[in-house]
């Protein structure tokens, strides 16, 4: 008879751990530096898996210039270039930036499915490739402007992109935060009632949220956020994340342009975007999986479970707000085009 409560405690602990990990990943994933606080101390040692990712992406990136040069003399080098561009994209996206955190948090907050997560990841990565190509194509190739002009253009785009992230976060926080308060309020009210009523009310309440927590066709309260128009709604997220081009892609494109191989640079950028999309989609899928698991665990805990889920969604929305604010104020540098 002792087993049941113990199991429940275990489940609770697991749920808590899962949420903590999820938050950690979301917060950390896009940070170039932990809120810029480590200025003045040497970066700590990076070993093992992280060091490996780091070494790989640096290695691939540094191979790109040689391959673009080689492609000039020998067309078949272009295939190698595309292969390496793809790998670079995959590994590069594992670092900060590229909207992993925003997309993951968005999916968690909105309780989207993994399929939608993959669509959002790919759409934003492709938009990012387009954005880099458009900037280099127009500013550098057509207008012949300097790197400084390109840098300034990126900065303007950046501000729009970060402001959008902040807006998305605020909107989500408003809706999800209210849902959380409502869930808390409902539970308290249920407690205040007499036993019979509490039972009835509590049961009804539980059932209601049961549906809304992990099915997508439901109607009221945060329904607006997980309903039919998810793609249109997701469009803001796609634009917010995809508008800002990757500095690496811009540098590669300019380099290819200087070698008279702009189109090879364009192809490389798209393949890079594809690689990026795969990594971002994988991470987004993990986040959605964790969210769903948390949902299933929470299902076992009627009243508190709903509050925990709403809490998680609110936290995810808060993460987006913090990101947007930190990026917008320059507190957090996702990437920078230094010195030009």
């Amino acid at each position: 008879m002792n087993r049941l409560p113990r199991l429940r405690v275990l489940h609770g602990l697991l749920l808590l751990l899962l949420l903590l990990l999820l938050l950690l990943v979301m917060v950390d994933a896009a940070m170039a530096q932990p809120f810029g606080l480590n200025r003045g101390t040497a970066p700590s040692e990076v070993g093992g898996f992280a060091g490996w990712i780091l070494a790989k992406q640096a290695e691939f990136y540094r191979m790109l210039s040689g391959l673009i040069r080689a492609a000039k003399a020998d067309g078949s080098a272009a295939y190698t270039l595309l292969g390496i561009s793809f790998l670079y994209g995959v590994f590069h996206a594992a670092g900060p930036g590229h909207g992993k955190a925003v997309i993951s948090s968005y999916l968690v907050a909105n309780n989207e499915t993994w399929r939608r997560g993959i669509v959002l990841s790919f759409a934003s990565a492709i938009l990012q490739a387009f954005s880099a190509i458009a900037i280099v194509g127009v500013v550098a190739a057509l207008l012949g402007a300097t790197a400084k002009v390109m840098g300034d253009t990126v900065r303007v785009i950046e501000i729009v992109s970060y402001a959008l992230i902040l807006l998305i976060g605020l909107r989500l926080l408003w809706v999800k935060g209210r849902a959380l308060l409502q869930a808390v309020g409902l539970k308290e009210r249920a407690h205040a009632h007499d036993h019979a009523h509490e039972h009835g009310h509590g049961h009804h309440h539980h059932h209601d949220h049961d549906a809304s927590a992990w099915s997508h066709g439901h109607a009221p309260e945060p329904s607006e956020l997980a309903g039919v128009h998810w793609l249109r709604r997701g469009l803001t997220a796609i634009v917010a994340v995809g508008l800002r081009p990757c500095s690496g892609a811009i540098i590669v494109l300019v380099f290819a342009l200087a070698q008279g191989l702009f189109w090879i640079g364009v192809a490389s950028t798209f393949v890079m975007g594809l690689g990026t999309a795969i990594t971002v989609a994988a991470i987004a899928t993990l986040a959605v999986g964790a969210r769903e698991l948390a949902g299933r665990l929470a299902k076992a805990k009627p009243g508190a479970g709903v509050i925990i889920l709403r809490g998680l969604e609110t936290a995810a929305a808060l993460v987006i707000v913090l990101f947007g604010a930190a990026l917008l104020t320059g507190y957090l540098a996702s990437e920078r085009l230094m010195g030009v």
Binding site: L18, V46, A50, I53, K100, L293
Partner: peptide, 27 residues
Amino acid sequence: MNVLLRILFVSLLVLAAGSLAQAHPHV
């Protein structure tokens, strides 16, 4: 469910460790 749970945990741990790399050299 337990297997799924374990896979998720391991992936998240790896992710958390990996994303702490914070590396992005472009120059």
